[in-house]
């Protein structure tokens, strides 16, 4: 069907639709009182509740934490975002200096399959986050140049670096304050804990397709 024919049919339908009275303007986000005095504390509490591992770090201590996690997974390479995209400086450079190697994140259009099947054995991905949502313990990632989507999706473990100053109260707050984050990039994802399923007898299992483990390092920059 063509666009005009389709939309004409919809227009005619709305004319006779039996709907309760509706508001004239789009209602938008609801920003209510969530009484979150301590945003970082609430974020840590809620992210921990959904089985993320959350650590509040200083700029100097962050690298040691990342190295510790790399050792935990016996990983010597990772897929990640470059330092220019990270809210905590010097992590990539520090890892390389210690002998860890970043995997190329560019998936060429003409050689997609070969590049992607090389991701099979990937264990660790390291990304930044644009912000955090205290109420749900979520992190928000926008993707784009130098910001691999796969890094937070394919590996067994995802390490996310987040600046405490970018944590807002809830998704509604984020959507009201940062609506441009959707248009700025082709992909935005809100991540709330590790991948999970309850499909088999409602038994909670972590790590179906996405990462089994999520580690969030919160830089205390307040």
């Amino acid at each position: 069907m063509d666009r005009k024919g389709f939309l004409d049919r919809v227009r005619q339908a709305t004319a006779t639709a039996d709907l309760p009275p509706v508001r004239q303007d789009p209602p938008g986000a609801l920003i209510g009182d969530l009484s979150t005095a301590d945003l970082v504390g609430r974020f840590v509490e809620r992210a921990t509740e959904v089985n993320a591992d959350v650590r509040v770090v200083t700029a100097d201590g962050a690298l040691e934490q990342v190295v510790g996690i790399m050792e935990e997974y016996k990983a010597d390479e990772y897929l990640g975002w470059p330092d220019s995209q990270m809210p905590i400086p010097g992590i990539g450079a520090g890892l390389i200096a210690r002998g860890y190697s970043p995997r190329p994140s560019e998936v060429p259009s003409d050689n997609r399959l070969l590049h992607q099947t090389a991701y099979y054995d990937l264990v660790v991905g390291i990304t930044g986050a644009d912000g955090g949502l205290a109420e749900s313990g979520s992190i928000v990632l926008t993707h784009g140049q130098n910001r691999s989507r796969m890094a937070s999706l394919i590996p067994d473990a995802h390490i996310a670096l987040l600046a405490a100053s970018t944590i807002v109260e809830s998704l509604s707050h984020w959507a009201a304050l940062k609506s441009e984050s959707v248009t700025r990039s082709a992909n935005l994802v809100v991540i709330t804990g590790p991948s999970r399923t309850g499909d088999i007898e409602m038994h909670l299992t972590q790590g179906v397709h996405g990462p089994r483990h999520v580690h969030i390092l919160v830089l205390d920059d307040r």
């Binding site: 809620r46 959904v50 109420e135 749900s136 313990g137 994802v189 809100v190 991540i191 709330t192 996405g210």
Partner: peptide
């Protein structure tokens, strides 16, 4: 859940 694990917003093909 407060939010599902992945809320994925796709705005077109890769840029």
């Amino acid at each position: 859940q407060r939010l599902s694990v992945y809320t994925n917003l796709v705005s077109g093909p890769r840029r």
